[in-house]
Write a protein that binds this DNA or RNA. Structure first.
Lengths: 238, 238
DNA sequence: GCCCGTCTGTGCGTTGACGCACTTAAAGGA
DNA sequence: TCCTTTAAGTGCGTCAACGCACAGACGGGC
């Protein structure tokens, strides 16, 4: 996990940082530290005070709720389209979720206090934070709907597309067991669904190394939930 | 649907309005109109521009997503603890949801533009809006988790308790068919679950008229999701 | 009092997902 | 090279929820 001073070019890899005003970015840059996040790293634990806010560039972070009995379910996924730690500026400071690195990569971090200060200034940055939060709400809402009404097959497609959108490559390093924990289903259920997608030629899969071969195919198999979320992200964060 | 000028006493029936600063409330009162909302009234439709924000006092509003095939699922419920139309100040102006009156009652409405103006002032009101939004996010998240992991029985308990919390009485005017649409399950599933709760003596039920007889019993039957949401609301909006 | 529409209850067969136990297969270290 | 570990695939039986069809049962209107 290396720390380094941030440059404008690096910062532009995160969609939120790339769309704020020049003077705001100028102020933030010295506070941003780029670091590498390994697979499985927990950025914060449920109910834990958040010391930093994170802006992923190539990493993907999963927001999970962990039940008392240990089972879990994903409520949202964040990549270079967003940030981790909205509770910092929303005023709650904590959330009852765990944030865990789903795909290794890089992210900026910034101290909570500095985040709050910039947010309070109320400029474009403030605006973008809120619009992103609304987009995230849509994603979480649609997860709720999808969990209620759709099959594991459809949900795996949705999950793959959401991940692919946030990924610089077509490869996803992730075991079926991990995916099942995220989706809150049986590992065998993922095995079955993944096999179907593989025989359709949409993905290939070897021991925790998945490659997306045919995105169009996935898009044709997914439920409407995916498109609803994507459209809303595009609308809010254009 | 009667319009009337709002008084401080009336406004205090909504928890958000009751906790803002006196000078802020002074400014808002002339803009607030109290109206009666009949069961089933749609406050806004998915993707529709919101002209008003609503602060329920005795009414309960359900946030639903309607699938292309007509099936639906609830993503959240709002009563005198909150407001309907957060997209107005979050910057998106619309959301891909429908807001529909689940239990008839009263609510204040205020013009979107006036809402935005007050929000932009950035005082305690701004703060409370954001904290409420975070609480709502927790509710939506927990709905996603509950949809994934829990039985219809448990979800009905959760739904009843969430409704009861926002209700001035123990009576809930609501057919099983409507409840099933909200929860996104079969009507017969609700019949079974409701029967079990009735034989346990927790509720009584006659043709769309439900009475909660034993709240403790419901609390003992519900999954942890209910308490997580309640605790978070208390923490954020104390 | 009777009728009819609506709400609730019940009984199927079906199915998608579950839990468990186990096998097969790949990767990596001794 | 073998051996251990970890990931993926398979085959059950079980169960909760589904869809459908229909049978009460309640209540408002005539």
């Amino acid at each position: 996990m290396t720390d380094a001073a941030a440059t404008k070019e690096e910062a532009a890899q995160n969609n939120l940082l790339s769309s704020i005003r020049a003077d705001e970015l100028e102020r933030l840059l010295p506070n941003l530290q780029l670091l590498s996040l390994p697979l499985g790293k927990v950025l914060y634990e449920s109910g834990e005070k958040m010391d930093y806010i994170y802006f992923p560039t190539t990493a993907i972070i999963s927001l999970l709720y962990i039940m008392e009995n240990g089972s879990s379910a994903e409520i949202g996924v964040v990549g270079n389209d967003g940030m981790i730690g909205i509770a910092i500026f929303m005023g709650g400071d904590t959330t009852p979720n765990r944030a865990v690195v789903q795909s290794a990569g890089k992210a900026f971090k910034m101290k909570s206090s500095q985040m709050k200060d910039e947010f309070t200034l109320g400029g474009r940055f403030h605006n973008i934070c809120l619009r992103y939060t609304q987009a995230l709400i849509t994603q979480i809402s649609q997860t709720a709907v999808c969990n209620r009404l759709h099959s594991v097959d459809q949900q795996l497609c949705r999950w793959l597309l959401l991940s692919h959108d946030r990924l610089p490559t077509d490869r996803l390093i992730m075991t079926q067991d991990l995916i099942s924990n995220m989706l809150g289903v049986r590992r065998e259920g993922i095995t079955h669904a993944a096999k179907r997608l593989q025989s359709a030629g949409y993905i290939s899969y070897v021991r925790g190394d998945m490659t997306i071969l045919n995105r169009k195919g996935l898009e044709a198999s997914v439920c409407e939930c995916y498109q609803v979320v994507k459209t809303e992200y595009d609308r809010l964060l254009a």
